Amino acid sequence: MLYVKVKTEDGEELVLEVEGMTEDEIREELAKAGFKIEEIEVYEVEP
């Protein structure tokens, strides 16, 4: 499983499960949803 931890400019932290997306695609999708991203951390969790 691939997850991203996202910190927004307003200090909110989100953890999202993503599969088959690049970091650029993740940033693009979050921007479309109205999030202003300060930091993204991508990590993989073994089942």
Rank of each mutant, 00 (worst) to 15 (best):
M1F: 12
M1H: 11
M1V: 13
M1Y: 13
L2R: 15
Y3P: 00
Y3H: 06
Y3D: 00
V4Q: 00
K5Y: 12
K5M: 05
K5T: 05
K5Q: 03
K5P: 01
V6E: 00
V6P: 00
K7D: 02
T8H: 03
T8E: 01
T8C: 15
T8P: 02
D10T: 10
D10R: 08
D10I: 05
D10P: 01
D10Q: 08
D10N: 11
G11K: 02
G11V: 01
E12A: 11
E12M: 13
E13H: 08
E13W: 15
L14P: 00
L14S: 02
L14N: 01
L14M: 10
V15M: 10
V15G: 02
L16P: 00
L16K: 01
L16T: 01
L16S: 01
V18L: 06
V18G: 01
E19F: 15
E19D: 08
G20K: 06
G20R: 08
G20P: 04
G20C: 07
M21G: 06
M21L: 09
M21V: 06
T22W: 03
T22M: 04
E23K: 09
E23W: 14
E23I: 15
D24T: 09
D24I: 08
E25G: 04
E25V: 04
I26D: 00
I26S: 00
I26P: 00
I26N: 00
I26K: 00
R27T: 03
R27H: 03
E28P: 01
E28F: 12
E29R: 11
E29S: 12
E29I: 15
E29Q: 11
E29N: 09
L30V: 03
L30E: 00
L30M: 06
L30P: 00
L30Q: 00
A31T: 10
K32T: 05
G34M: 03
G34S: 02
G34H: 03
F35T: 01
F35D: 00
K36P: 03
K36L: 07
K36M: 07
I37N: 07
I37F: 08
I37P: 09
I37G: 06
I37Q: 09
E38W: 14
E38Y: 14
E38L: 15
E38G: 08
E39A: 13
E39Y: 14
E39Q: 13
E39I: 15
I40C: 04
I40N: 01
I40K: 01
E41P: 01
E41D: 06
E41Q: 11
V42D: 02
V42Q: 03
Y43E: 02
Y43H: 05
Y43K: 04
E44A: 13
E44F: 13
V45G: 08
V45Y: 11
V45I: 11
E46A: 11
E46P: 13
P47Q: 08
P47E: 06
P47G: 08
